[in-house]
């Protein structure tokens, strides 16, 4: 049985969850030294930026941030190729403690692709995973280190995570139908 459809996280809840995760990251890594936050495109990236802001406020040091596009690392072959975004990791990963940031974890395949992508860029000292929402149904032995909220869903349901930076609001909904695309579409992601 899945969760009821509808709002599962509002803006306040999201703010508190991200704040808590920021503190947990600092606690687990004993500060912000040598720390880098890498958001998985697209919605992981703004969350990583918010975490970096919070950490900077607490520690006075801003962790490095980057964004990772994993279109080229997906192990499924959709009928139409997803548009290739830009990976921007403007620092050397080697020896860094990397926190991968994504909005939702589901099967674990995205995370797996992201880990592969990171290793193509360098050899980090450690990789951790932060997600806003864990909706279950893992297909791989992957476990997030930091979770904003656990939500039981059924496989047929959709999670629509909306962020102010992209969608104009902070909220997470469980839907019975796929969400309408929102926010600024990737340029040229046409036909």
């Amino acid at each position: 049985m899945g969760a009821e459809t509808g709002l599962v996280m509002d803006a306040d809840e999201m703010r508190r969850a991200i704040t808590r995760i920021a503190h947990e990251i600092l606690e687990k890594n004993k500060g912000a030294q040598n720390l880098a936050l890498v958001g998985i495109m697209r919605r992981g990236a703004p969350i990583a930026d918010r975490l970096a802001d919070l950490i900077e406020r607490v520690e006075g040091i801003r962790p490095l941030t980057g964004r990772l596009d994993i279109a080229l690392y997906r192990d499924d072959y959709p009928e139409r190729r997803p548009p290739v975004g830009r990976t921007e990791v403007p620092f050397d990963l080697s020896g860094k403690r990397i926190v991968l940031v994504d909005e939702v974890i589901y099967t674990g395949r995205t995370t797996n692709a992201a880990i592969t992508a990171l290793f193509d860029l360098g050899r980090p000292a450690a990789i951790q995973l932060a997600v806003l929402l864990d909706r279950g149904h893992r297909e791989l032995p992957i476990r997030p280190d930091y979770v904003g909220k656990n939500v039981a869903t059924s496989r047929g349901q959709y999670v629509d995570c909306r962020l102010a930076e992209i969608d104009g609001e902070d909220a997470v909904y469980i839907l019975a139908e796929p969400p309408e695309p929102s926010g600024q579409e990737q340029p040229c992601a046409t036909s």
């Binding site: 279109a71 690392y73 290739v84 040229c188």
Partner: peptide, 26 residues
Amino acid sequence: DQIHQVLQTAVGFNEILKRPVKKVPT
């Protein structure tokens, strides 16, 4: 639109060509 799509995608690949390990598993 298709011309734009190819160019858009190529811009993404230019970044890969600057990496020390120029390989993706796609």
